[in-house]
Nucleic acid binder design. Structure first.
Lengths: 340, 340
DNA sequence: TTACTAATTGTAAGCGCTTTCATAAAACAT
DNA sequence: ATGTTTTATGAAAGCGCTTACAATTAGTAA
């Protein structure tokens, strides 16, 4: 491997000058610059990332922590992060987190060992107070996705208009004047889920009608949604007239149950999900669209900016949601189950 | 940030000894080891990754290049890579590649700048001969997924049993004795697609029946599959009796056309895809299962092993596929379109 | 006790860059 | 022509580790 010294030798210049052209820090005569560039190409020289990191104390990489969830959601978020960070010449160091793994480990190798200049923590990567304290010490910019963090240290965050989106969904459902409305939430500690529930309650209150609102606790998984809904139906002995699952996966579980019982959708029961994932689009599930890629882009933008200027005040970006009315609430052609 | 020197000062030991306990290279008295560990904890010390990289010339990270495709496929592959690399204490530096981006750039920053100890190149990241030459120079282990590379430098590869899988699909289709069979391929230069086509031809020949085989050229995308099939139907003025699309996305496109024409599936037309993606599972599309996570695991295993021992001969792993018979070929409940 | 081997620990030379400060050359003004 | 800026380059000190190799200490057999 050619080193900077080889380039110096070849050009007869000092390390300082060669370093300057590598970093494009101006202050170099154009002719010299070209001479160096030529030598670099001829030697097939690439600056050692390790050395630059050590000497320059910056890594040009941003650490991303994603939950281990195989659906398309986080790929899209990741893609958004990628778009913006590629543009900013930042590489992505990615770690997956699941409840069995140790977030502290991940955090210390990313920030403690100085592998990254900034961090993006996605939903479902629960920060413990102690970890936050450590992170604060390392003072590396952090952007949170779908999580809030009000105390010090200041962290940027990208949030969803959950309240609004859930409210829209409920309003849409109530248009047909159902007697009963079931919502299936995500995990209790999930911020998105909490906000959606607030939105639901508010919308129901605002509607000033007398729907019966039942809150079922789900887990954001297909099977979980199915199970909790099935259980409810068994207990109550009847189907509700409207169901709002806090994500599409669970809504799909609800549809399973409904289809197996040959209930007409949306004739007897309306169903709405949240996310607008691939299957929802495919089968015509009414849902609330979440701008996944944009979320990633915003998160990357936030940290990229903060890397340049750490003094910026923490920013919180709210991403818009939008109701997508489809067949399961009577829009478009009628729904017919893909599973029989 | 505490440095190794701080730990030395605190313990009164030399950098060599402290370094030894950090690296667990034995040769340190147990009491000393504990003393150092304690000091590290108290100082909240983490070894600088940059310094270790520079001094030790290893990065403990593996570079992964994935195509920009938002479906669940590559997340699963990535997940597999993650599982194995986490176990081997390797971090993942991920780059996305799409036809507009410059692979050379990605490769040089990953291998040329020495950011990674090894590389995993996924499908659809077409290596040009010149790039390969450069990579050879850097002699960093490389594993290819879904690509073959026979010449020097030796590269590991993880391949699919495309031939077998496609053959199985065709055999399954021919059981009902269709008069005509249409296959919709992927891009012409795609290795998987080429192999699947070989498998198809072989299976048709083996069957020794007189199906008419028509090969349509697709692109692995839903819309592309739909378009090419629609065009064919228009031209020929009739529906074939069996369709084998080389991935699920295109098969879904075919189903769209069929459903819009209210053709009975599988009564009039049987359809098979390839991949076994989420939607295929959901709607009951017969398909060929691809062990995506396992593919990632194997790729990571290969490079992890080669990092330890560069002398190992290049290895080529063949991953098994398996036919999953579902409704679109008459298994399970009859198929009914999710879109009307 | 003495000589010798094994187990620990220390010394110091880098790894390949960035960057501050000093110096030299060129450009300009007087 | 001389002093003053401005511009271009160089010298050298680290950045925080790893790792030969040297030195010391402990352990053992004679």
């Amino acid at each position: 491997m050619a080193t900077l010294y080889d380039v110096c030798k070849k050009t007869g210049l000092s390390t300082a000058t060669v370093s300057r052209v590598i970093n494009g820090s101006g202050l170099v005569k154009e002719a010299t610059r070209e001479r160096v560039l030529k030598a670099m190409k001829e030697l097939n020289y690439y600056p050692s990332h390790a050395a630059r990191m050590l000497a320059g104390s910056k890594t040009d990489t941003i650490g991303v922590i994603l939950p281990v969830i195989d659906n398309g959601y986080y790929v899209r978020v990741l893609r958004g992060i990628d778009v913006v960070s590629t543009r900013a010449n930042l590489k992505l160091l990615i770690s997956f987190y699941h409840s069995g793994s140790d977030l502290s480990d991940i955090l210390s190798s990313l920030s403690g060992e100085g592998r990254a200049d900034a961090l993006i923590l996605s939903n479902d990567t629960p920060l413990q107070p102690e970890q936050i304290r450590k992170l604060a010490g390392s003072d590396i910019p952090i952007a949170l996705i779908g999580q809030k963090h009000e105390d010090q240290p200041a962290m940027d965050s990208v949030l969803l208009e959950n309240f609004q989106g859930a409210g829209d969904a409920v309003k849409h459902l109530l248009e047909k004047g159902p007697k009963s409305l079931i919502v299936i939430t995500g995990p209790e500690d999930n911020h998105d889920s909490q906000e959606r529930l607030r939105g639901v309650r508010q919308a129901v209150a605002d509607a000033a009608c007398d729907v019966e609102l039942v809150v079922l606790h789900g887990d954001f998984y297909h099977e979980g949604g199915r199970a909790v809904f099935e259980e409810y139906v068994k207990q109550s002995g009847a189907f509700p007239e409207a169901v709002f699952a806090f994500n599409d996966a669970m809504a799909l579980g609800v549809l399973d149950v409904l289809n197996e019982a040959s209930v007409s959708i949306p004739g007897d029961v309306q169903v709405i999900g949240f996310d607008n994932n691939e299957i929802a689009q495919y089968i015509g599930l009414t849902t609330v669209r979440v701008p996944m890629q944009k979320i990633g882009e915003e998160a990357a933008r936030l940290v990229a900016e903060r890397i340049k200027n750490k003094e910026l005040p923490a920013e919180s970006v709210l991403m818009e949601t939008a109701l997508v009315a489809r067949k399961t609430t009577g829009n478009g052609a009628s729904f017919s189950s893909p599973k029989m």
